[in-house]
């Protein structure tokens, strides 16, 4: 099964089980969790089911398109089920069978791997799902977000789409993975990995990026002052990404690292708190 079929098939599977299917967020994010459909929705006590693909941009993971497994940008298929159904593990296994993985022929295990995003005051307990020893999914029961207990408890399934597609097609390099019936992943994306890796590692203007960091911080504060939570949060996403660029450029000055993370965290907290309070009203 090629990559786009896997995406369509997973979307269909979760759509049939009551999920809202939304589109990727149109800003750079490091993980599907940062999409407002996860970040904000898990904060309220209302049941919610949603699924979407989210391209996840991690500048420091870029490898100029030369490493067969590492990508500056990879695709996550994200599912949020709130409250977590008791049979969620079985549902998940069904979804794998649905995309053509014959679990009788493979070894599938749930190994402890907890998740934590200190910048967002969020953490969860869960597993990495290993298929014949390869991590294909991060499976997390979210316990806290924005520093608050999650009730009901959402479960987050994050499928690593490239990994799964590589596994199903048994190809040695991500770039050889069939994207569609006629094009490979490399034909579609290699160019992007090459140029954008180079940009993040060598070209990005450090001084200007740092200035933008200050700007979006002030902008986020200003939006919070206007009680505009989503714009304030979009600034937080910008801040996270700018931080990642500075990090990839090797210029997050040592002592500054904790400091920058704390500044982002502080704003993310404000957004989360504001949303949770609004939910109660």
């Amino acid at each position: 099964m090629n990559l786009q079929k896997i995406i369509l098939s997973l979307s269909g599977f979760w759509e049939e089980r009551g999920c809202l299917i939304v589109q990727p967020y149109d800003l750079e994010v490091g993980a599907g969790t940062l999409h407002p459909e996860t970040f904000f929705r898990i904060l309220t006590d209302r049941p919610y089911q949603v699924a979407y693909v989210q391209p996840s941009r991690r500048p420091a993971d870029g490898r100029y398109g030369e490493n067969p497994f590492r990508l500056m940008k990879h695709l996550q298929f994200q599912v949020i089920l709130k409250p977590s159904p008791l049979e969620v593990q079985e549902l998940y296994l069904q979804s794998l069978r649905h995309i053509g993985i014959d679990l009788d022929q493979h070894d599938l295990r749930f190994e402890e791997d907890n998740w934590e995003a200190p910048t967002l005051g969020a953490w969860g307990v869960g597993w990495q799902v290993l298929l014949d020893g390869m991590e294909i999914t991060q499976f997390t029961y979210m316990q806290q977000a924005g520093g608050m207990d999650c009730r009901p408890v959402p479960v987050e399934l994050t499928y690593g789409l490239e990994r799964i597609a590589m596994f199903i097609n048994q190809v040695p390099s991500v770039y050889d993975t069939p994207y569609s019936s006629t094009l490979t992943y490399g034909q579609v994306r290699l160019w992007e990995e090459q140029e954008i890796s180079k940009y993040y590692f060598e070209v990005a203007d450090v001084a200007e990026t740092a200035r933008q960091f200050d700007f979006y911080e002030a902008e986020s504060e200003r939006c919070l002052g206007e009680k505009l939570l989503l714009p304030a949060y979009e600034c937080v996403l910008k801040l996270s990404h700018l931080f990642n660029i500075l990090d990839a450029r090797g210029s997050v000055s040592t002592t500054n690292r904790t400091n920058l993370i704390q500044r982002i965290r502080h704003l993310a907290f404000q957004c989360a708190l504001g949303y949770a309070e609004r939910g109660k009203a």
Binding site: P68, F69, H106, D132, G133, F167, P172
Partner: peptide
Amino acid sequence: GIAKGIEWVVEARLTDASF
């Protein structure tokens, strides 16, 4: 078959390490 699958993952890991 599973051993083959694990070999594939190990091969990927080692290629990565060689890189």
